[in-house]
């Protein structure tokens, strides 16, 4: 596959799209800005000194999409038919996810416009919040989908980190020594995708280490041992005590088997 923005001599040039047929095109991109939990709380409550952060960032993203051709050297100026910029506040990750969708009936794709909208919306979020938080981090800016045009449709495959096949040997979680057989223990199992993501299938936890002898208390101890266990608090993760579905308040005693697993997908 060749780079279309280089001519036969390898010099940058603008592609002549005059002969391409017009088609309905749409592109969607997203990005994430990580911030301190306190910053996110201020943002959600509208307590930041520069005022309505999200409304401002939304307008900035829309403006940026329209001006993409001024910023990216070989982009055509386009009469976009629609630009939307949306925000999702994620308190678990302490971040704001920005998504932008651009639409056009025309001869060239609109992915650069969507990516520019996301980038500038993220930068505007930074500008609006920097008075209280300079450690914010912008990342994961990427194209999620694109439809229309000669090169065909594109859809980003499953988001998130790739899943490693096979056993959990790679990236084992350090859990310290297993409890000896004399003292009361809880047997913890992580199943399926959760096992692979955490890198641990089975472990033992001394009952005495739990401040509260229930599932919530066990999760707390696991998270203190390794921050990766924060995943156990995600809404999707289910729990069973002695093979019966359980909740945070379910009590745990000596020799109990506690399993954590993702939603089921059999049949």
């Amino acid at each position: 596959m060749a780079l279309t923005h280089l001519n036969a001599r390898g010099e940058a040039h603008m592609v002549d799209v005059g002969d391409k047929p017009e088609s309905q095109r749409e592109a969607s991109a997203s990005g994430v800005i990580l911030m301190q939990p306190a910053t996110l709380a201020l943002l959600a409550d509208g307590g930041l000194p520069k005022g309505d952060v999200l409304a401002t960032a939304r307008i900035a993203g829309i403006q940026a999409a329209k001006r993409t051709h001024e910023l990216i050297p070989l982009c055509h100026s386009l009469a976009l038919s629609k630009v939307t910029v949306d925000f999702h506040l994620d308190s678990a990750r302490s971040s704001v996810e920005v998504t932008a969708t651009c639409r056009l009936n025309g001869r060239t794709g609109v992915e650069m416009e969507a990516l520019t909208a996301v980038s500038i919306a993220c930068l505007t979020l930074y500008d609006m919040c920097k008075a209280v938080d300079k450690s914010m981090e912008i990342g994961e800016i990427r194209l999620n989908s694109k439809t229309g045009g000669k090169s065909g449709d594109y859809q980003r495959l499953v988001t998130g980190t790739p899943i490693v096949t096979g056993e959990c040997a790679a990236g084992e979680v350090s859990l310290g020594p297993r409890c000896d057989t004399e003292s009361p223990c809880i047997r913890v199992k992580c199943l399926a995708e959760l096992r692979e993501r955490l890198g641990v299938g089975e472990l033992s936890v001394p009952l005495a280490s739990l401040a509260r002898a229930d599932v919530a208390g066990l999760k707390k101890v696991l998270k203190e041992r390794d921050p990766r266990f924060a995943r156990l608090d995600e809404g999707r993760v289910m729990c069973a005590v002695n093979q019966v579905m359980a909740a945070d308040a379910t009590p745990i005693t000596d020799e109990d088997e506690v399993a954590f697993f993702p939603p089921v997908t059999g049949g």
Partner: peptide, 27 residues
């Protein structure tokens, strides 16, 4: 039985496709 099996019975599918392996998400 099938409707309940799909949402309640602890089975998990991992698919092996030409471009890699992934765990199937619930629907």
């Amino acid at each position: 039985i099938m409707d309940y099996l799909k949402t309640r019975a602890p089975f998990w599918k991992k698919e092996h496709a030409s471009d890699g392996d992934y765990w199937v998400a619930e629907r």
